[in-house]
Design a protein around this nucleic acid. Structure first.
Lengths: 166, 166
DNA sequence: GGTTTAAGTTTACATTTGTAATCGACTTTT
DNA sequence: AAAAGTCGATTACAAATGTAAACTTAAACC
């Protein structure tokens, strides 16, 4: 189970977190410098996001002698997982396979990555299904019913599906 | 290349789009009914989202005789891809493999899905790399440097990485 | 030791998002 | 034809987000 992440993280907050994750413990000055370079943010802007992340419980502070050091309270992997879970709540369950295929196609992977993925894929064969159930609308997506002749949903695998695919 | 999606789509807007995708052409009444069931939204709320989606150019309207029919101007797959691209801009390139592994592990897949994924994975072997480059911070993530002894980033594969992993 | 500087905290403000009521123009009903 | 219902459009408003200046306090410097 993935650690519970209380709040969603915004795009801007991601940027800050990445700097922290990349170095474990950092001063605000370091974060500010990196993001001034990378995102052209004014120092004040970065400060705001740091503050919000502390409030959200994503970052914690520690006073080393005189100065503040920021570190992350949540791992990058956990936030990624939490964000993806949120995202996957939005999409049709039938799109999951396509989605992974798309990601896979466009990814830069290491040999080790590929190795791991192959193994996982192998185990997935055991619980593969004939047709992934659709969860789009309560009464189920109409495209899975026969005779519905103008479905243009991507996940529709009826033979009518490519008649008018933008 | 994925179709350019002008605007980001919000969680609430996803819900509306899903109803439209599931049925191709729908009246507002149908959308409202589904989302009243599924999300307990007041009709006015759904109307707002429909309106915003029309403004964003995601939905288009057509008057069949007397009444409005809404249909999607963008395919579900394209929006998913666009959203995932946005998301992947936020995460470390080294996390991509892990991410796909996570998704794969938790996915419900069809036999066909698995088949496709296997083939893609096979082709990925050709351009696999020894170590995926990190894109977290301009000067590269410190965890890839030797001697940096307190990196707790998930993607750090130095041997010090599990000393204090929350 | 007073002044400059650095850094965390407060305040500011425009946009976007979530959530919804109300308005205005048709349509349908009586 | 007047009343009532539909439905798209307009308006409302709080919370979240992007972006940043100002304030405050403590440290550093001359």
């Amino acid at each position: 189970m993935v650690a519970e992440i209380e709040h969603k993280i915004t795009d801007s907050e991601w940027e800050v977190m990445r700097v922290v994750w990349a170095q474990n413990k950092v001063t605000s000055k370091e974060i500010i410098e990196v993001l001034q370079q990378k995102k052209d943010w004014k120092p004040a802007t970065t400060k705001t996001f740091i503050g919000r992340l502390v409030n959200k419980g994503m970052l914690e502070t520690e006073t080393e002698g005189k100065k503040y050091l920021y570190s992350s309270k949540v791992s990058e992997g956990d936030i990624i997982k939490s964000s993806l879970n949120d995202f996957y709540n939005n999409i049709c369950s039938r799109e999951v396979g396509n989605t992974i295929a798309y990601l896979l196609s466009n990814a830069t992977l290491s040999f080790k990555d590929i190795d791991i993925l192959e193994k996982i894929l192998e185990t997935k064969k055991k619980d593969a299904v004939e047709e992934v159930p659709c969860n789009c609308v309560p009464g189920q997506c109409k495209c899975s019913e026969h005779g519905y002749s103008n479905c243009n949903s991507d996940h529709c695998n009826s033979n009518h599906s490519n008649e008018h695919q933008g």
